[in-house]
């Protein structure tokens, strides 16, 4: 059972992601997470301001259940399946992060420099998480999908729009990581 408690290698995780996608299609649905954000806006009453959100959100109830499941899955993994919270990142990555101002990179699952309560209570820290979320939400719906819909489903279906989107994901990610993060932090 020890292997379950260790971090899972890529050749276990990748196939299990495909298996998750298989079950969603097998049960007549699709694999796409970011559309849930639209459903949540519709539930919140956004249909009063924009007719796009004026749809019957109950038809996406299955996807909200999927999301509820992922929350439970995160809880189970954290509570019972992850005795060691550290992330064994590359030594070079640790050094690079140290130069940017991230201390003890990889010692915890997430950096305090972004996710700690103290950070988020500061205006800068709050704006980083809020702004990052806005970019993710805006970009995913503009592109018509996120990592699940484009990078996994779309590429599996050999779709050109998804290839272009994934190239975009990398253009944005590389600009952020190499140019903007050293400026922001």
């Amino acid at each position: 059972m020890d292997f379950i408690l260790e971090p899972w290698p890529w050749y276990v995780a990748g196939p299990l992601i495909t298996l998750s996608m298989f079950f969603l299609f097998y049960f007549g649905k699709k694999f796409g997470v970011s559309s849930n954000l639209e459903t949540m806006c519709a539930i919140g009453g956004a249909g009063r301001f924009n007719e796009f959100f004026d749809f019957d959100w109950k038809k996406n109830g299955w996807n909200l259940m999927f999301i509820a499941g992922t929350i439970i899955g995160g809880f189970i993994a954290f509570q019972w399946l992850t005795p060691d919270e550290s992330v064994a990142i590359n030594l070079k990555t640790m050094q690079d992060l140290s130069e940017v101002g991230f201390s003890n990179a990889g010692a915890q699952y997430l950096p305090d420099e972004i996710f700690s309560i103290d950070t988020v209570m500061s205006l800068k820290g709050f704006l980083i998480l809020l702004g990052g979320g806005i970019l993710v939400g805006f970009g995913s719906r503009y592109a018509g999908g996120c990592t699940s819909g484009h990078a996994i489903t779309g590429l599996s279906n050999l779709e050109l729009p998804s290839l272009i989107s994934v190239i975009g994901f990398f253009i944005g990610g590389l600009i952020m990581t190499w140019i903007l993060i050293p400026i922001i932090f």
Binding site: G132, I134, L135, C146, I164, V166, G168
Partner: peptide, 18 residues
């Protein structure tokens, strides 16, 4: 796809979560 993807990527790179 290219613009939406790039905007998404900026956010993904910043907060590390899609």
């Amino acid at each position: 796809n290219i613009l939406g993807g790039t905007i998404f990527g900026l956010g993904w790179g910043l907060i590390g979560a899609c």
